[in-house]
Design a protein around this nucleic acid. Structure first.
Lengths: 234, 234
DNA sequence: CGCGGCTTTGATGTTCATCAAGTAAAGTGG
DNA sequence: CCACTTTACTTGATGAACATCAAAGCCGCG
């Protein structure tokens, strides 16, 4: 019995990692190395990891749940950079270099983070060129997406921003036009640079105009095409 | 005589590249390869290269001069992402992956771009792991800087933004508190998300308050510490 | 039950974009 | 080199968009 369990043991990274972009070219033995050195960290909803705790030590990776990746400013105003879904990296950008801003991670649902020692990543970069290439592609893609998002948001008015973020939730995070908001109204504001009050006002307007149905955190998008137009031209 | 010239020929990349971050670990023969396959492109002040012209073919690199890296929106509004100094990369972020936004390059002074075929870069990534590592560091550093800049600007008011951009010119581009603006007032607006009129108004205010001296494009920063405070808290 | 955080609505004020109109500077063609 | 056109710069007036302030209801939690 005991032996059976031992025999049936296999590294779960093999399954997990397949789904990922930049680990696809790791060899069997490399995945074993990865698997042995990785640390899984369970985060309860609401729990936060300050950047310093993992910075310069681990590459953080979301295995399950949902987390936000955000900065804190001295004046108490936060800015949510992105909401991270499973199988996405949380700390790609700041790896291997210091930055002044602290990017923190906070769980929006119970989540499991996979922490991979940077030492191992660095090793792979030096020994597996296909990995390096995949890694570079991932980094540039993520960076581009974040920058594009900033540029896009910057030219939108409040209605456009709310429409934009609703479509983000529907199309990118939940793949459904009905979903439960994982964040507060204030946090929506922190995602798109507007005040809590105006987030609420705009959501209410959309509700009254029957573009969406929103009660508490439950959202249903009704007039998706109109919303898309508002997002695009607003 | 002729032979002498031939003998004294050496690849100028060897000198040029030393100064650079992510080419420092290329071997002699790799630099030769690089040198032979690179293309230099002269850009006259005001001349523009549309993204499509180099996208997916070259890594662009500024050898001398000054260029802006910007996006065009349908509504005619542009957004300057960054001003690029010599020995900085112009197209790092979009390399190896497609993006919808078109990032164009336009010369603010007569400039020389060094275009390196992506094929070569890719080759180096696959054959020189130290290069890969340096490259990853560069990409993440650049991405971080751009993102930090967006976050920083977003929470500033108009005065804070103008102060910020003036300090950028002084400290990062010209390394001097006296300089000639390489761009128009409209373009300053495109760098920090404000209208031409308000750029002018704010610059005039700073002039009246004797924080700076500005006549035409000539700028001298007088009260640097005050400007810093405005940038920080504005 | 009461406290704190979230949500909501209305009233008020500020910041900033827009509009207008004129001057200066720079490029263009005869 | 001068008239002509265009682009850049400047200032003031107006209005819209948005933040801020205030007050109250709601909900979950110790």
């Amino acid at each position: 019995m005991k032996e059976l369990i031992t025999l049936s043991y296999k590294c779960d990274c093999k399954e997990c990692i397949i789904r990922n972009l930049f680990f696809k070219h790791l060899k069997e033995e490399e995945i074993d190395t990865l698997c042995k050195s990785k640390v899984e960290k369970f985060l309860k909803e609401g729990q936060t990891i300050l950047k310093e705790e993992i910075h310069n030590t681990y590459l953080a990776y979301l295995k399950s749940g949902l987390v936000k990746y955000y900065t804190e400013h001295k004046n108490g105003k936060n800015h949510i950079i992105t909401i991270v879904k499973p199988y996405e990296s949380v700390s790609l950008l700041s790896i291997f270099n210091n930055t002044n801003l602290s990017y923190n991670i906070s769980a929006l649902e119970d989540s499991i983070l996979c922490l991979i020692p940077l030492k191992i990543i660095k090793e792979f970069i030096f020994t597996n060129s296909e990995f390096s290439f995949d890694y570079i592609n991932s980094v540039t893609t993520i960076a581009n997406r974040i920058i594009e998002r900033f540029l896009t948001l910057n030219i939108k008015n409040l209605k456009g921003r709310i429409a934009f973020v609703l479509l983000e939730f529907a199309d990118e995070i939940y793949k459904s036009d009905s979903f439960k908001l994982p964040i507060t109204r204030r946090e929506i504001g922190e995602m798109i640079g507007m005040t809590t009050e105006n987030v609420i006002r705009t959501l209410s307007e959309f509700h009254k105009e029957k573009l969406i149905k929103i009660t508490g955190k439950e959202v249903t998008i009704i007039e998706k095409e109109k919303l898309r137009k508002i997002s695009l031209f607003g």
